[in-house]
Design a protein around this nucleic acid. Structure first.
Length: 920
DNA sequence: GCAAGGTC
């Protein structure tokens, strides 16, 4: 490696960014380097002497700023109207240095001319390797015989840098080629689809009211579209959600020691009748028996892993509601000013060589967390713990950590303070012991139903003391013993409805992208911002994303074509292929050829099916005035002359929910429409005219139905008529309805008209309960009456006045007779005072004289549930001991039951499925 | 005017 003729060699060292150049120069020169200006104001040149493997070297250290080059089409293809976008799949592409990087290139050329060796200090990832070859290309062009080597380092730590420079290797061509392939594919796909959809849609629709259509770019990109896809998919999921009512039994027990809230271990039931039966069983024999001995168990809550970019973005969004894009801007500024380490990193584990304690030491001066940092360093405190390993390492940067102490600089905004505080507290948390708690879970049995309650007592907060962003809720429950019995304080049957998931928030979106491999840690926030900038999505005050009409229409259009261009699969395949290239299993040429061939075929087909995109846009946007209408009429195939207005044709359309309809093209003046069966997968108008329907011609439609959507006996393929003669079509509409999503999705201003929507409801479905039409299954009157009846079956008239006084309020009780199966004929006392719900079985009262104020714990002995297992050890709580506590339940007597309220109107006299409001 | 990837 030594230069012929001996003497020092001149070595040009190039790093990926100025900060790395400076750090490496500082480490190798032990802090004594000379600095001079380069052509670019950001990229200085540092000079020092060093010996590589015994060879004296005059070191020149400079940097680039990320990629030096960009990929571009040749001139002939650069203008949008210069070629067919399909040509972009084979148009020549070349790398060139953009204008703003020309000065860096000049510096490299000038320094390379003076140098003998070129040592590449680019980040040790695939992009870094690709940038290395860009640097090589520039330098070799001016100095052909440069000796070229690559330094490998994963952190700017002295030992690692010295080792790297003494163990120089060849740059990895395969890594660079993988990136070349990715760049070319991204450019060709992105440019072709962007030009295609922009030119197709921009001038045809009034997309916004600002009149800026002319400059609007409707971009497509293999990262931005899947990101949009996540937002749209969640939005559709929410729109399609149909609330379903469910029931759960809740139980609580208050004693002198506190209150325990028990959850039903069945969770909840969707079947009202079953829930009521189980509830009534519990109410009739309400004694709770403790089933387990609840020994407290030690539980830990561990601190987070060291901070990487995605985690920083997610946490800043959650804790401070900062957008990922703004977080990265602030983090970049803190990094530039030297307060935190490099903020674009995937790594979430510290190298064993990191001096972790020194970073804590720095922070001991801080007024807020300084004392915690001090305690961390005290060995007797036992607070220190080596940080966890999150399992990611980009081999280029350490996790984000503080690099310089600050108690806040004068030029910092609130966001700078927050991000710095998050980085510091996160770091201190990482090197701390986990929080410790004692957890207790008590399980009880009431009439064979199991309930459980959990309590948690925090024993040591540890890292939670400094990581104020996280908490660990703790609630203490009373102590129970196995076999102990008590009467619950409340025992209620509550109803609720299922809710759709929320819109995606920024942290959710980052999670989706991370899991699907969309973008990199350094670019994910850019893709999110791009969706907002392009007008594909909006973000509300809670940082939750919704698609705009444009975003939804684009996804719908491609979805209707049958393509998953908006799903992450395409990117995943590309990532996989890149890996194959980088390990040498496939060549760059192979991957390019296969991928581009497929994508071109897809592009050409999408262009053939452009009507799908136009149809989707038609749903949300008015046609623009400045276009020729010739093409607009092709959005639907004509089926017949409108038999209502007689002025226009009726055309086959697919609405935004994927449901098919034949609607008058004179909409909104005429709202005539025929909706087609919900399970229609495909429909196309044929040239066959129906022989019996008129006024003609009424063209037949060729249907393809979803197999799973239609009843047995119906064919998936059907040649049908919407003129009224087709019984099969009518039956399918009767049975299957005309689709379910249209009600769920928000109706845009343009379509569909009310009468169309009216015909497309579940009203035409057959109720699953009574097999009748005219109502939804959930509103079935038979079901509501059955529910009401089921409650009535337990109702008995008051049949006896009693001589028993209420054990709670002292008022006289009435004697009633139970009529449910388990307790038929059994008598019980019930207090009549409003608000008091005293209840006791007659046969459990020990004082048969009737003036009972106490009773034995033998209630239900010999019955299911075996109540006779003893009193338990805690006299005050033992079975039947209801002293002083108002128990708000009532048996199966039909009395109003506390806790049961209609979720719809709040009335305790009925459940929501029988609510008059709902049924109306 | 287009992509995504670096980074100031």
């Amino acid at each position: 490696m030594s230069r012929r003729g001996g003497g020092p060699v001149t070595v040009l060292n190039v790093a990926e960014k100025p900060s790395v150049a400076k750090s490496v120069a500082g480490i190798l020169s032990n802090g004594s380097f000379r600095t001079r200006e380069g052509r670019s104001r950001y990229n200085k040149i540092f000079e020092f002497d060093y010996a590589i493997n015994g060879q004296p070297c005059r070191m020149l250290m400079t940097s680039v700023i990320g990629h030096l080059m960009e990929l571009e089409f040749s001139d002939r293809y650069r203008k949008w109207h210069s070629c067919d976008p399909a040509d972009l799949y084979q148009a020549p592409v070349m790398k060139h240095v953009p204008e703003d990087k020309k000065d860096i290139k000049k510096t490299l050329e000038e320094e390379a001319r003076k140098s003998d060796w070129l040592v590449l200090w680019l980040d040790c990832d695939r992009e870094g390797e690709n940038i290395a070859f860009e640097v090589v290309d520039v330098c070799r062009a001016v100095k052909h015989n440069l000796f070229i080597r690559r330094a490998h380092f994963s952190a700017l730590i002295a030992r690692e840098i010295h080792e790297a420079v003494q163990n120089l290797r060849d740059p990895n061509q395969l890594f660079a080629e993988a990136v070349d392939a990715r760049q070319e594919i991204d450019l060709r796909i992105g440019a072709s689809f962007t030009r295609f959809q922009t030119m197709l849609l921009r001038d045809r629709f009034a997309i916004d009211s600002t009149g800026e259509e002319r400059s609007r770019v409707i971009s497509y990109g293999p990262c931005q579209f899947p990101t949009l896809g996540f937002i749209v998919e969640r939005y559709w999921e929410i729109q399609a959600h149909e609330p379903e009512e469910f029931w759960t039994i809740n139980c609580s027990h208050q004693s002198e020691e506190g209150i325990a809230t028990f959850n039903w271990m069945r969770g909840h039931l969707f079947d009202y009748a079953s829930a009521v039966i189980l509830y009534e069983m519990c109410v009739e024999e309400p004694t709770a028996t403790v089933m387990n001995v609840p020994h407290p168990r030690e539980r830990f809550k561990y601190p987070p892993y060291p901070l990487n970019t995605i985690e920083l973005e997610k946490r800043a969004s959650r804790y401070f509601r900062l957008s990922s894009e703004h977080t990265m801007k602030v983090a970049e500024e803190l990094y530039q000013a030297g307060f935190i380490s490099y903020p674009r990193t995937e790594t979430d584990s510290f190298s064993s060589r990191t001096d972790l304690r020194a970073m804590v030491e720095e922070q001991t001066r801080h007024p807020a967390w300084g004392s915690y940092a001090q305690r961390l360093l005290e060995p007797e405190g036992g607070l220190w713990r080596n940080p966890g390993n999150g399992g990611h390492d980009d081999k280029a940067h350490p996790p984000i950590h503080p690099t310089k102490f600050s108690s806040g600089e004068s030029n910092w905004s609130r966001d700078h303070l927050n991000v710095y505080e998050l980085v510091v507290r996160h770091y201190l948390a990482c090197v701390s012991q986990p929080a410790v708690a004692a957890e207790t879970t008590v399980e009880i049995d009431i009439s064979g139903e199991r309930f459980s309650a959990s309590g948690r007592a925090i024993l040591a907060k540890n890292y939670l003391e400094v990581y104020r962003f996280e908490s660990w809720g703790g609630s203490v429950i009373p102590v129970y013993e196995k076999g102990q019995q008590f009467i619950p304080t409340t025992l209620t049957l509550d109803s609720a409805v299922t809710r759709p998931p929320p819109l995606l928030c920024e942290a959710d979106l980052l999670c989706c992208m991370d899991k699907a491999g969309i973008g990199t840690d350094a670019t994910m926030h850019d893709h999110i911002k791009k969706l907002l900038d392009r007008g594909y999505a909006t973000k509300d005050a809670n940082t939750r994303f919704s698609p705009t009409h444009l975003g939804e229409a684009l996804v719908m259009g491609y979805d209707d074509m049958g393509y998953e261009l908006w799903k992450p699969n395409l990117r995943a395949v590309m990532e996989h292929d890149m890996n194959e290239v980088s390990v040498g299993r496939k060549t760059k040429a192979e991957v390019l050829e296969t991928c581009l061939q497929q994508m071109k075929a897809c592009f050409l087909d999408a262009r053939v099916k452009k009507s799908k995109l136009l149809e989707a846009m038609t749903i949300f946007f008015e046609r623009s005035n400045n276009t020729d209408e010739g093409e607009n009429q092709t959005a639907g195939e004509v089926v017949r002359r409108c038999n209502l207005c007689n002025e226009s044709d009726m055309a086959l359309r697919k609405n935004r929910d994927g449901n098919f309809m034949v609607g008058c093209m004179n909409y909104p003046q005429c709202r005539n429409a025929v909706w087609l069966p919900g399970p229609t997968l495909e429909a196309s108008v044929t040239t066959n005219a129906c022989q019996s329907c008129g006024p003609g011609p009424v063209y037949n439609i060729l249907f393809k139905f979803r197999q799973i959507g239609i009843p047995p006996g119906f064919d998936v393929n059907h040649l049908g008529c919407v003129g009224g003669c087709d019984d099969i079509l009518k039956q399918l509409i009767d049975i299957c309805g005309t689709g379910s999503r249209s009600q769920a999705r928000r109706a845009p201003d343009t379509v569909p008209p009310n009468n169309i929507r009216g015909s497309n409801t579940r009203q035409s479905n057959v109720c699953v309960h009574c097999q009748q039409r005219g109502h939804a299954s959930a509103n079935c009157p038979s079901r509501a009456s059955a529910s009401r009846n089921s409650r009535r079956t337990g109702t008995n008239p008051i049949n006896d006045e009693s001589t028993v006084s209420c054990n709670t309020c002292g008022a006289p009780c009435v004697l009633r007779t139970a009529s449910t199966e388990a307790n038929r004929g059994r008598k019980f006392f019930s207090c009549q005072t409003q608000g008091c719900s005293f209840f006791a079985w007659e046969d459990s009262i020990s004082n048969s004289s009737g003036n009972a104020t106490t009773w034995s714990n033998s209630s239900g002995s010999g019955r299911r549930g075996s109540r006779g297992r003893g009193r338990g050890g805690r006299g005050g709580q033992s079975g039947g001991g209801r002293r002083g506590s108002g128990t708000s339940f009532v048996s199966a007597t039909g009395e109003p039951v506390s806790g049961i309220r209609c979720f719809s109107c709040g009335d305790p006299s009925h459940f929501a499925n029988a609510c008059p409001n709902r049924n109306s």
